[in-house]
């Protein structure tokens, strides 16, 4: 893992929504770097700007200021055509929260898996040959290929979504709440797969509202609050010695198996501090 050749470098990113008087700032000067093979947990509550950050990095929403480098390429001010070329190379991929919505209900699992390869121009035969070894990597059976997404369990579907993100051998995958729609058994299964990916040369940005759900897989944790990055550091440091009040509240609020009676007054104090 080296940070001298980062996969993603975001500097001073600003995103606005709405026009004129309704104009509202969604991201306010966010800077973040993701090293090769690094797993970054991006944490924030609803409306904190974490999803906007991901969408800006993917070129889905325009940003008004700042600079974004993806695998060394400056994408600031890229045209639609240039974005399309970049995406076709499959350097950056995205996994949605709900695979039932992000997989075409009328396309077989095989169709969904080969789609990114066909888009970049591979032949169908090559593409199919490429996806086979991936299936074992996400612990799925070949038999699922001719099925439709509706015929799979939630956990299987999310593993298909992860496999789809892997087909182009990306340098970076952004995952938006990839396990929060799954039940315990499947959550562990998907987290296990993501953990195994770390040995491969792929960086992950793991977006979640729950610090607890990424603590086990992230090398580094970044916390967003009201459009700003308020915390950014190695997972251990952020969790054991948080700097910002919001991070302290976030850690104090994460459900743990310990008795929480003692934390209740602490949380109340942090809330008062945060809203002051």
């Amino acid at each position: 893992m080296s940070t001298d050749n980062p996969v993603l470098t975001v500097t001073d990113l600003e995103v606005h929504y709405g026009a004129r008087r309704r104009r509202r700032q969604a991201l306010n000067g966010v800077s973040l770097e993701v090293g090769r093979g690094e797993v970054v947990g991006l944490i924030g509550e609803t409306g904190s700007g974490k999803s906007t950050f991901a969408r800006a990095v993917l070129g889905l929403v325009p940003f008004s200021r700042g600079q974004v480098l993806i695998d060394g390429e400056d994408v600031t001010g890229h045209s639609q055509r240039k974005w399309r070329e970049l995406r076709r190379r499959g350097v950056i991929q995205y996994v949605f929260q709900d695979p039932l919505r992000s997989l075409d209900p009328d396309a077989t699992i095989e169709d969904s898996l080969v789609e990114p390869l066909l888009i970049r121009g591979d032949s169908r035969a090559d593409a199919v040959a490429r996806i086979r070894p991936l299936l074992s990597r996400v612990h799925l059976d070949d038999e699922l290929l001719p099925r439709l997404p509706g015929e799979l369990s939630g956990g299987q579907r999310q593993r298909v979504a992860v496999a789809r993100a892997l087909v182009t051998e990306p340098a970076l995958i952004i995952l938006d709440e990839p396990v929060s729609a799954l039940d315990s058994a499947n959550r562990v299964g998907v987290l296990e797969i993501l953990k195994e990916l770390r040995s491969a040369e792929v960086s992950l940005v793991f977006i979640s509202h729950d610090l607890g759900s990424v603590a086990g897989v992230a090398d580094r944790i970044a916390v967003m609050y009201q459009g700003q990055l308020v915390e950014n550091g190695p997972a251990r440091d952020v969790i054991t010695a948080p700097q910002h009040v919001y991070t302290r509240l976030l850690i104090g609020s994460a459900p743990t198996l310990r008795s929480a009676a003692a934390n209740r007054s602490e949380r109340a104090a942090l809330r008062a501090l945060l809203h002051a």
Partner: peptide, 13 residues
């Protein structure tokens, strides 16, 4: 739909 967005993210025209 999200699956169209997913295709666009993969570079689909």
């Amino acid at each position: 739909s999200q699956y169209v967005e997913a295709a666009l993210i993969s570079g689909a025209s």
